[in-house]
Amino acid sequence: MTGKSVTIIGGGIGGFAAALALRQRGFDVRVLEQAEATAEVGAGLQISPNGLHVLEALGLGEALRAGSCRAQAVSLRDHRRGTEVLRLDLARLRAGEEYHFVHRADLIGLLSQAARDAGVQLRLLQKVAAVHPGAPVRLEMATGDSCSADLVIGADGLHSVLRGALNGVVAPFFTGQVAWRAVVPNLGGHPPEARVHMGPGRHLVSYPLRGGRMVNLVAVEERRAWTEEGWSHFDDPANLRAAFAGFGGEVPQLLAAVEQPGLWGLFRHPVARRWHGPGVAILGDAAHPTLPFMAQGANMALEDAWVLAACLSSIDDQEAALARYQELRRERCVKVVEAANGNAWKYHLRNPLLRGVAHLGMGMLGRVAPDRMLGQFDWIYGYDATKVA
């Protein structure tokens, strides 16, 4: 199928990774992005070894290392005093496995530039209103124009037009949790580790970005109030500081530096039942939106992109290639999403006695059997999509 025209809806991590992977295999690729620029601001993300395998295979491993912070540990901490409960030493990962913190804008810039250098066409201000699967696939634009392609890939996120065309519209379920996100200067010398500050009904995650100059913050609170889903809502920083007023250690200093935090409600979406149809496929959040509690959203999108490109380049029949892609990806993504769904409660124990016992147990196990604690994530980090595909 080399030489066929592929249109990718969405200029995010999954979209550009798929564009680059397909272009490297000889496909004619264009990316349609509805924004006026591809850069995103105000957000960090974690690239675990499974995501790094894909970036390495795309030829971007060294560039990722140059623009990110290599993580040394994950540190779980008591909210009130900031003292460490459990430390997972990432140096104990298997040989060749690395974990990195990177600004989302930096990773998208890296992927988009590599894709354009490889010959991918990028078209901005292109909002797709509808997709009609077929041979060829027809796209209707918000402007009233239309275009066609041999293959259309939906990498257009939570509110994917193509996901709806394949699966219909299913209302998401509000989890009863909201999250603030912010990036602040690293004034307190935050080390290259992810710190999870655990408290009753809430937790805060912090880790450095951009050579340690900045710190990414994600703060999650349980609440009854329903908050609209989305990435473009902002809140008064006083509300964030009030929600975490009982947190000690370095948290007050970090929150004092927040100027305009983003705020969004956390929703559960089912993993899409159908990932492909005649001439179309979906990947990333369009196929399997996930809560942030395993830090796997970007990594899953990278895996999807590689596997989809590998299937399309190695199987002559397009529909068979798309079916194989779903077969290879869906079960793993369901497992990751379910793990993320069940992870937040571990950080939010409200009963002081129960929380104390749980923290004591975690600390003891971490000291007695550190490899066992870290090894519980082998099924995620040890996965290499470039070999599976």
Rank of each mutant, 00 (worst) to 15 (best):
V74F: 12
L122Y: 00
H359Y: 11
A43P: 08
G375R: 05
D28A: 15
V102G: 01
E33R: 03
V31T: 06
G144V: 03
S112W: 05
G249V: 04
C69I: 01
S5Q: 13
E327A: 14
H197Y: 13
S206Y: 01
Q318A: 07
P200N: 07
R224N: 12
G59F: 05
A295T: 11
E331A: 15
K4Y: 12
D378C: 13
L204F: 10
G199A: 12
L353P: 11
E97H: 08
I108F: 00
L124D: 08
L291T: 03
A114V: 12
V357T: 15
A295L: 13
F267S: 07
W379Y: 09
A155G: 11
G96V: 13
I108L: 05
G284Y: 06
R116M: 06
D371L: 14
K335T: 01
N186Q: 01
M373E: 03
L124P: 05
T38W: 04
G154Q: 07
W180N: 11
R87M: 06
R30H: 08
R23H: 08
A257G: 02
G277K: 07
H197F: 06
E221W: 10
W231G: 02
H132K: 09
L263V: 10
R268D: 13
Y207N: 08
A63W: 02
P133M: 04
A179Y: 05
E40T: 00
A155D: 10
A340Q: 03
S314P: 09
Y347G: 04
R273I: 09
A114P: 00
A339E: 10
D236T: 06
V169M: 14
V137T: 08
E319V: 09
P49I: 00
G342H: 03
E36F: 06
P270R: 08
R268I: 14
G212K: 00
L86F: 03
E33L: 02
V152M: 02
Q121P: 06
E140N: 09
R195H: 14
R65C: 06
G189W: 07
D145P: 01
Q126N: 12
Y383N: 05
L110C: 05
T143W: 10
L64M: 06
L322Q: 03
P370L: 10
N186Y: 00
K335F: 10
R324S: 13
V29Y: 02
R273E: 08
V220K: 02
F377M: 09
V218E: 03
Y99D: 00
R223C: 14
E97L: 08
R104K: 05
R70A: 15
A149Y: 04
A257V: 00
R25V: 02
D384I: 10
A256N: 13
V307I: 15
E62Q: 11
S313A: 15
G82V: 11
E56I: 11
P200E: 13
L64N: 02
P191M: 10
E331Y: 08
V152Y: 00
